[in-house]
Design a protein around this nucleic acid. Structure first.
Length: 494
RNA sequence: GGCGCGGUACCCAAGUGGUAAGGGAGAGGUCUGCAAAACCUUUAUGCGUCGGUUCGAUUCCGACCCGCGCCUCCA
């Protein structure tokens, strides 16, 4: 079996084979850095991250590029409102994006910035003009002539046949040849930031940057181009038009689009009051691992309904996996190996792989790991696990986590970082009691905890339960769970 | 209006032409000084509605109802 992915271009699931033997070149449309990233953004970026992780796990080397849109209308407007330069404004939110992406377990792609490719973009426009594919309007803007690209609409399956002759001229766009023609380059408006270039002053249109930067980094034809489903039209359609009409070659071979998520059953929007940035959720006391788990649990092409109930459920699911991992890694086992456990681990690994190869069916991959966990827990209870089975089972878990990235318990540190950020921004009022508590639970050091546990054990051995119970509740109050097992005491932070 | 997606148990959510994964929650039980973890049993003769094809459909086809997305630089 090989990886099969849905390709928006062909509207069907196809076998994914990169152009070069063991190398995948892929590009994702990244954020416009005009604010903090919301969970919808991160659903998309996490989906692409999982794809990228799975490709690597499957043995490919992956050249993964993501753009940062650091110039556009909203940025210019917001920066002006805040009374700061565009650069200051975008630097702040780009930094926030990188931090947030790391917090949610995204492996950082090669990031490229629009403002650092202005020259190349101007050249690109000039070349299109030379081929008579682009034209300049009176104000100094440049537009792409859609009539010059008959395949326009092939990605979004739109038929522009009757609309290309200029019959419907939009009154606002007075000097475009056709209403559908899109801006490659925008002439400066009074007071706005602009660049002086070979094609005149101005700034790039949105679509241009992705064509220029992806081809610069990955070549004229590369393997896969990703983004949210809203980008199919017009953004990606326009990228294809300008890129392919310039090179005469296929631009991206696979088009990977992630479905929008719903929040509490409705489209996320500020007016509905269900708009959440990643930081909002952490401020409410939710763990990054819970958020990531929930976002990974529904296959990327299905609608995902993000709810707070679901977030709670996700937290428990992650805990179940972590408990199992801890149980295996802290237990003691007789030497030897149990064939049943060996094949259990192998089957789980195989099923995970098969599921992910099937257009990244993450829900099934999760089911596979949970089935293994249940069986292995049973075996653990029955003392049927031998020393040599432990690494096999742990490896299956690690393979799972190479894709899902939810097992590493670094939630506390991440939440502390958000706590500190909110404090430094003067947003103490946004810090929930839950987050405060979660951060507080870090107040005991490992050494202190170990010491208290030792005291507790002494008390328990002396059947002095009053003392041991008091110690237990003190630790529980600090978010530390103590488990007394046959193999000794095991503890973890909740 | 054009194009597309979906409606599966209390919640989230896979899936298949032959009678429904997984997680959470609830109930009962085992284990246990307490606690926690874990395990077992249990919760859809049912997969939006109505027809059709078929030996047989939740899975294929048609109609309808409901929800959602894109078609205005929102991932």
């Amino acid at each position: 079996m090989a990886l099969r992915l849905y390709n928006t271009m062909s509207s069907q699931v196809e076998e994914f084979v990169p152009l070069r033997d063991r190398e995948v070149r892929m590009y994702a449309c990244g954020p416009t850095v005009y604010g903090y990233g919301h969970i919808g953004n991160f659903r998309t970026f996490i989906a692409v991250d999982m794809l990228q992780r799975f490709l690597r796990q499957s043995g490919y080397s992956v050249h993964y590029v993501m753009n940062i849109t650091d110039v556009d209308d909203k940025i210019i407007r917001n920066a002006a409102q805040d009374g700061v330069s565009v650069q200051q404004y975008t630097a702040k939110f780009e930094k926030a994006f990188v931090e947030d992406a790391a917090m949610i377990g995204i492996e950082q792609p090669t990031l490229v910035r629009a403002t650092e490719h202005i020259t190349q973009m101007a050249d690109f426009v000039a070349r299109l003009v030379k081929k008579d594919i682009a034209y300049r309007t009176e104000d100094g803007s440049y537009y792409f002539r859609i009539a010059s690209f008959p395949q326009y609409g092939k990605l979004s399956k739109k038929d522009f046949g009757g609309m290309l002759d200029g019959a419907r001229v939009d009154l606002d766009e007075y000097d475009k040849d056709s209403a559908r023609d899109f801006a490659l380059w925008k002439a400066p408006k009074p007071g706005e930031a602009f660049w002086d270039t070979s094609i005149g002053p101005g700034r790039p249109g949105w679509h241009l940057e992705c064509s220029v930067m992806s081809m610069e980094e990955l070549g004229e034809t590369f393997d896969l181009h990703a983004g949210g489903e809203d980008l199919v039209f017009p953004h990606h359609e326009n990228e294809i038009a300008q890129s392919e009409s310039l090179t005469g070659k296929t631009f991206a071979r696979f088009w990977f689009h992630v479905r929008f998520l719903l929040v509490e059953g409705e489209k996320m929007s500020k007016s509905l009051g269900n708009f959440y940035t990643l930081r909002d959720l952490v401020l409410k006391g939710h763990k990054p691992s819970s958020i990531r788990y929930l976002l990974t649990s529904v296959p990327y092409r299905n609608q995902l309904n993000f709810t707070f109930d679901g977030l709670k459920q996700a937290a428990v699911s992650v805990e179940r996996l972590r408990n199992f991992q801890q149980r295996l890694s802290t237990g003691t086992f007789p030497s030897g190996s149990n064939p049943a456990m060996q094949s259990l681990a192998k089957d789980a690994g195989d099923r995970m792989k098969t599921s992910l190869e099937d257009d990244l069916n993450t829900a099934q991959a999760q089911a596979a790991i949970f089935e293994m966990v249940r069986s292995a827990n049973s075996a653990l209870d029955a003392s049927e696990i031998k020393q040599d089975d432990v690494p096999a089972l742990l490896t299956a878990l690690e393979k799972f986590d190479e894709i899902f990235a939810v097992l590493k318990d670094d939630d506390g540190a991440k939440m502390k970082a958000v706590f500190d950020w909110a404090s430094s921004e003067g947003r103490e009022k946004d810090i929930s009691a839950e987050l405060r508590e979660a951060v507080q639970s870090g107040r005991f050091s490992e050494a202190e905890i170990e010491k208290k546990i030792a005291e507790m054990e002494t008390a328990r051995r002396g059947r002095n339960f009053k003392v041991s119970d008091a110690l237990r509740s003190e630790l529980t109050g600090a978010g530390i769970v103590i488990e007394n097992t046959k193999d000794g005491v095991r503890w973890r932070r909740k």
